[in-house]
Amino acid sequence: MSQYKHVLIAVDLTEESHQVIEKGFAIAQRNNAKVSLVHALEPLGFAYGGDIPMDLTSIQEQLDQHARKKIAELGGPLNIPDNCQHVIVGVPDSEIHRIAKEQDADLIVVGSHGRHGLSLLLGSTSTGVLHGAKCDVLAVRIQKDKEK
């Protein structure tokens, strides 16, 4: 098994994020590795196609503040320092690749909802992270009722 030095855990800030964090944090502890959390917010302009003639800046800032609060709530109890809690705006898979490279992460941990069908085996973000990563990627299967 590889000796990981820096585990980057990508979370979507849903209730299921704890499952991804538990797996990633356990691997980091076994390897005495640094842990970072990352959440990627898609720009609102992407969600609305950029066709709406309105300023979405204040809404984007509110989403950013909410995400920072949520990621701090997840990272705080695990003593993950503030400078290792990243909220970034952009296309999630490419931004996760960028932060992994910048932070020299050697393992990215993401959640997978395990949807049916070959093309839906992983979620779109998980698939994008897997295919473009320059390091190992662990896809954690999300359990709706946290059954093991």
Rank of each mutant, 00 (worst) to 15 (best):
Y4Q: 11
Y4L: 01
Y4C: 08
K5E: 13
K5G: 15
K5F: 11
H6S: 08
L8V: 12
L8C: 06
I9C: 02
I9M: 02
A10E: 09
A10C: 01
L13N: 06
T14H: 12
S17N: 03
V20M: 09
I21Y: 07
I27M: 06
Q29D: 10
N32E: 15
A33W: 00
H39L: 01
H39F: 03
E42V: 02
P43D: 05
P43R: 05
F46H: 13
A47H: 12
G50D: 03
L56I: 04
L56D: 09
Q60V: 02
E61K: 13
D64H: 15
R68P: 10
K69I: 13
G76M: 07
G76S: 14
L78I: 09
N83A: 12
H86V: 05
V89H: 02
P92E: 07
R98Y: 11
I99L: 12
E102F: 06
E102N: 11
Q103F: 06
D104F: 03
A105C: 08
D106Q: 05
V109F: 04
S112F: 09
R115F: 10
H116R: 14
H116M: 07
L118H: 10
L120W: 09
T125N: 10
T127K: 13
T127V: 00
V129M: 10
G132E: 04
G132K: 08
A133W: 02
C135H: 10
V137N: 00
V137T: 09
L138Q: 05
L138A: 11
L138G: 02
A139H: 00
A139P: 08
V140N: 00
R141P: 09
Q143V: 05
K144D: 12
E147R: 14
